[in-house]
């Protein structure tokens, strides 16, 4: 199948332009994902601090560290040992939920690379495009959407700890849905990015596959 040279240059030109546009769209999405992921990465230090607080309060046999009169967000009116304990997994929850997006951009999710590493860069990007569109994005959106009623229920009922720990349980439940939607958006960003390379393979040599 031989095509006239002029037409081939034309289509190539369109491909290249589309690729450039897709690349353009992908950048802010990926940028935000990386930025949020890096920000939540620091939470590991907060987790350490929360656990150490629990340990120290336990060694001292303390139940309450502070008590105040007005009701505040998350802590109601006291900071007890169970506030510290539950704070551990609230913080850990935010850490892991948003880190999955960061790991997406840094290619940290496990791949069985038996065949994959033999594919051309274009082939590797194609695997990701198809996977993100048919596997990752539907999974994230479906779970996030179907879990949302439970988030609302938690919000409306004012669900809180039964051990005198933290209140506002909807925050961490809501984070699950929000983080999954965020992951889906970032996967979409990667679809645009990978498509730009599938369309214009010369980009593969210029652009890194993943962030570090």
């Amino acid at each position: 199948m031989v095509r006239p040279t002029g037409a081939k240059i034309m289509t190539d030109a369109v491909h290249v332009k589309v690729a450039a546009a897709l690349h353009q769209i992908s950048q802010p999405l990926i940028g935000v994902g990386v930025w949020v992921g890096r920000l939540t990465s620091w939470l590991v230090l907060a987790v350490i601090a929360a656990v150490m607080t629990t340990i120290i309060m336990n060694v001292l046999g303390m139940n309450e560290l502070l008590r105040w009169d007005s009701e505040v967000f998350l802590f109601k009116n006291a900071f007890t040992i169970n506030s510290a304990t539950e704070l551990q997994w609230y913080l850990y929850g935010f850490l892991v939920l948003f880190s999955s997006t960061y790991a997406l951009h840094t290619n940290s999710h496990v791949r069985v690379d038996l065949l994959y590493h033999r594919f051309s860069p274009r082939g590797q990007h194609l695997v990701d495009v198809i996977g993100h569109l048919f596997l990752l994005i539907p999974f994230c959106l479906m779970v996030a959407y179907l879990y949302w009623p439970q988030v609302m229920m938690s919000f409306n009922s004012g669900e809180q700890s039964n051990f005198g720990g933290l209140t506002d349980r909807y925050i961490i439940k809501g984070a699950l849905s929000v983080a999954l939607v965020f992951l889906a958006l970032n996967a979409l960003g990667r679809v645009f990015y990978s498509l730009s390379i599938v369309l214009d393979p010369t980009r593969a040599t210029k652009e890194p596959f993943h962030v570090h």
Binding site: H109, V112, D113, C140
Partner: peptide, 19 residues
């Protein structure tokens, strides 16, 4: 099949559960 394409294992698991 999914994991041997080299697509991340976690995403294959999640996606197949929906499909």
């Amino acid at each position: 099949i999914g994991i041997f394409t080299g697509y991340p294992v976690a995403f294959v698991l999640g996606g197949l559960s929906i499909i």
